[in-house]
Design a protein around this nucleic acid. Structure first.
Lengths: 337, 337
DNA sequence: ATAATTTATGAAACGCGTTTCAAAGCAAGA
DNA sequence: TCTTGCTTTGAAACGCGTTTCATAAATTAT
């Protein structure tokens, strides 16, 4: 046991060296147990001893080492959030909802931006295993379910996709249902050449949309044209490429179902520049009801993303129970169809 | 010292109870020091002992407790990032730059969304003090410098504002200079009734812009009209309110300097709907050169935000040195002036 | 009056990994 | 031959806080 010199005692008292709980105990004339009790608002400490502890802490500007607390308690009050991109309105809104709920519950976010690389997703899962985060929310992923399920035993994992057949919690939109209803709405408006724009073609959400589209075509005896499917559509600026592609096509869709209002807004803006009239030449329907859709009068389906984020957080906190929450999608009719 | 029962040994071997370093040492027939040496790629371990350790770890699916590692080593490989909003393109790009650099250097981000509340900013600073994060990047703040400087002793703090006169590192745009040059450009194009749109009126960056505007008016003997300054402009949809305000004004600016391309795009879109011609009736100049500015042909000043984020990260990693990096702003002329 | 409960305190063990220092053997250099 | 440096290993101390269990006194309930 290293003996503390007089010089070090002086430094600790003046806050030049960080004091530890033993220093505080000695200075206050109590045991480390009593100091810990004061720190953790435990009832059985006399008022005078509690005050002595508080004064010692203030004199030394004491701050406990949080890693020691985490080791002892087995919790870090950090929650991991996996997103493919930070700079994207959809995920920005999810993060906002999660972040606000987290701060209201004394949790902090660890943001893991994956760029849709499996290795990064596994890093996030490993943080759960090595106890660096108390829970993990996966907003979008590329890794197989088989990988995720190996980590469930280490802590709560929550998905932002339909996981009703899996033993993890989720908050999700039934994309098959909402995509189908949007397709039927467009069909009811007289459209039979309908295309759609998505971010990527893999993933649970995208598979559901694809299935809905295929089913829709069959039900209505419509032929499938692969050129009517546009992927890689994430941001406003991606609308430009879609319009360029449309201009080149002999046979064009007369309606586009676009899985992001931002992209829909980009398409709309570029169509105006190229003399394509909306909705006469091309009807456009968005998703999410982001603020930009109101400004530009885009017909859309509303998903309350901040609220989804909030629910994801509370599911992650409820580590005892697995729950599956479906989010209702609301139809917002404006001027683009 | 608690004696481990035969049942517990079996559970550890089968991975039903998490093994600790002592279990691995016993199973491999070495000391915990040797196990730690293997874990940390220390050279002085014989090949056969290293292999025995590795096999024991694999058999138990061993994962060390990262909080114990952090306690021992005094580092968590977490970096705090303070942003006012998650859902905003400017901060989204900064975070993207920081996040990519962080992952390339084995660091993870702890995202603290403050909604411009001082209390939240102090929470972030406290994480530095209690050793939960190794460094802190403040992208935008509301708290006084007096608060920040009390935390410098606990670890590296990096600001995204001009902090050349302070003992913290920063990566910044000289907003006085760039705002001045933009004002002079508009003046040179014949405009004397020039307004500007900003997010908020407080903060280092905003003060510099305000000073540049005041100086510009004086130099050119132009009168100050408070109605020409629009604040609360963060997103595309905020453009709508600005255009509504413009329509009500008797005396309107003939040019607008807008501190975000997103807002400029929103203004542009709404002007078109209200019969205001760009640039004939109103010239618009943006900032950042976000992708949307190219699609909509907005004249702008380019700030490479992803690169700024990257630089902020590397400054935070260089805890030994204080550095101040000015970012050059590049003029991009398009069609809105 | 006796038993049970509450209040208050502290020594020591506990969580789990890292590091220091001692010890021993071997090889190279003076 | 002696000294120095390298290689290898492990016991014990260290980091810093939390919790358990023992002890004693005071208060309340039977």
């Amino acid at each position: 046991m290293k003996r503390v010199s007089k010089q070090e005692k002086l430094f600790i008292k003046e806050g030049l060296i960080m004091a530890n709980i033993k220093d505080i105990a000695k200075m206050a004339g109590v045991s480390v147990t009593t100091v810990s009790r004061v720190l953790n608002d435990y009832p059985y400490v006399s008022a005078e001893k509690a005050e002595a502890v508080r004064q010692a802490m203030e004199k030394c500007n004491y701050q406990r080492n949080i890693n020691a607390v985490h080791l002892s308690k087995g919790r870090t009050f950090l929650i991991g959030v996996v997103v493919p991109f930070s700079n994207h309105p959809y995920f920005g809104l999810l993060i906002e909802g999660i972040a606000n709920a987290a701060l209201n519950n004394n949790y902090k976010l660890v943001l893991i931006q994956t760029n849709y690389e499996e290795e990064k997703e596994v890093e996030a899962l490993t943080m759960l295993k090595d106890k660096q985060i108390d829970a993990l929310i996966i907003c979008s992923r590329i890794c197989d379910w088989g990988i995720i399920k190996e980590f469930i035993e280490y802590g709560p994992i929550v998905l932002c996709e339909d996981a009703r057949e899996k033993n993890v919690s989720c908050t999700f939109v039934d994309h098959y249902k909402s995509f189908s209803s949007a397709l039927h709405y467009l069909y009811g408006k007289g459209h039979s050449r309908i295309g759609y724009c998505i971010g990527r073609q893999s993933g649970t959400n995208s598979e559901q949309r694809s299935a809905a589209y295929t089913r829709f075509l069959e039900e209505n005896s419509l032929s499938f044209n692969p050129d009517f499917i546009f992927s890689g559509c994430f941001n406003f600026e991606d609308g430009e490429k879609i319009v360029t592609d449309l201009m080149r096509m002999k046979e064009r869709p007369t309606a586009l179902l676009v899985t992001s209002d931002q992209v829909a807004a980009g398409i709309l803006t570029c169509c105006k520049e190229h003399g394509i009239f909306i909705p006469e030449d091309l009807a456009i329907m968005g998703f999410d009801n982001q603020p930009i859709s109101k400004v530009m009068h885009i017909t859309t389906l509303e998903i309350p993303l901040v609220e989804v984020g909030r629910k994801l957080f509370y599911q992650a906190m409820d580590g005892e129970r697995v729950s599956h929450e479906e989010i209702a999608v609301k139809f917002i009719e404006r001027e683009t169809v």
